[in-house]
């Protein structure tokens, strides 16, 4: 199996049809181990049991960023090689990345409520994740506004790459904005070093989340390929009706 083989949509479908059950099984297994580890993980001396939220919050944040990296790589494929499979990969990754970013935001605010006394503070990290979420929604909106998939792919690729350059800049300026007027009584998260008893379940959960992302992404890519076939067939049908 080489990259060239995978680059052909039909072969991609055939290969992933075989790989998908294994990926799903690996994901379930990783989550089973991860949840067990989380169950037995000790409480944090400062934050108590709420630290358990971290085991989904942090991997979700990591995947929110990772999905954008995947989209950027696919965007390069779209712009440089004009490969349709790259378009498909970019389009399939966007909703999944947005969902993980949303998960990060939701769990973060549920963590913040007992820790800070409010669901939301304009903390630098939370705010950066919120901006990332907005960028995802923008990319999805762009995909949804254009009828022609190839054209939409190129536009979304440009936006994704601009985002990839801009997100670190946004992160930096948000940090700066936040230190400029930091509210005093906010408990800083992750300020202390992480104990191994917490680090191990966190890593297992991160692996499980990554496997979940890969599984969902491959499945969504297969759907996207099928959607394009449906589109082609519909155009063929319309053409057959009109033409001689």
């Amino acid at each position: 199996m080489s990259l060239i083989d995978l680059a052909n949509p039909s072969r991609f479908l055939a290969l992933t049809a075989r790989a998908l059950p294994w990926l799903a099984a690996a994901t379930v297994l990783a989550f089973a181990i991860g949840i067990t580890e989380v169950y037995f993980a000790p409480d944090d001396y400062q934050q108590g049991a709420t630290v358990k939220i971290m085991f989904i919050h942090v991997p979700a944040a990591w995947l929110g960023v990772f999905a954008w990296i995947v989209m950027s790589a696919a965007a390069l494929g779209t712009l440089v090689w004009r490969h349709p499979l790259a378009d498909v990969a970019a389009k399939a990754a966007a909703p999944i990345g947005a969902a993980f970013t949303l998960m990060c935001l939701v769990t973060g605010s549920l963590w913040g409520r007992p820790m800070w006394g409010t669901y939301w503070v304009w903390d630098a990290r939370l705010t950066s994740v919120l901006v990332l979420f907005l960028m995802y929604l923008g990319v999805i909106a762009l995909w949804r506004t254009m009828d022609d998939p190839a054209q939409a792919a190129r536009a979304a690729a440009v936006l994704t790459l601009v985002g990839a350059i801009n997100i670190p800049i946004i992160k930096f300026s948000v940090d700066w904005w936040n230190t400029l007027h930091q509210p005093a009584s906010v408990l800083r998260l992750g300020g202390s070093t992480i104990h191994p008893a917490i680090l191990v379940p966190l890593i297992v959960m991160a692996v499980a989340f990554t496997l979940l992302f890969v599984t969902l992404h491959v499945a969504a890519m297969r759907n996207e390929i099928m959607r394009r076939r449906v589109r082609t067939l519909m155009m063929l049908q319309a053409g057959a009706r009109m033409g001689p």
Partner: peptide, 19 residues
């Protein structure tokens, strides 16, 4: 709705994060 979300998110950047 997306525009609404973006505008509301931008406001604290101009006003400051004072809750």
């Amino acid at each position: 709705v997306l525009f609404f979300l973006v505008v509301v998110t931008l406001m604290p950047f101009a006003i400051g994060p004072d809750l």
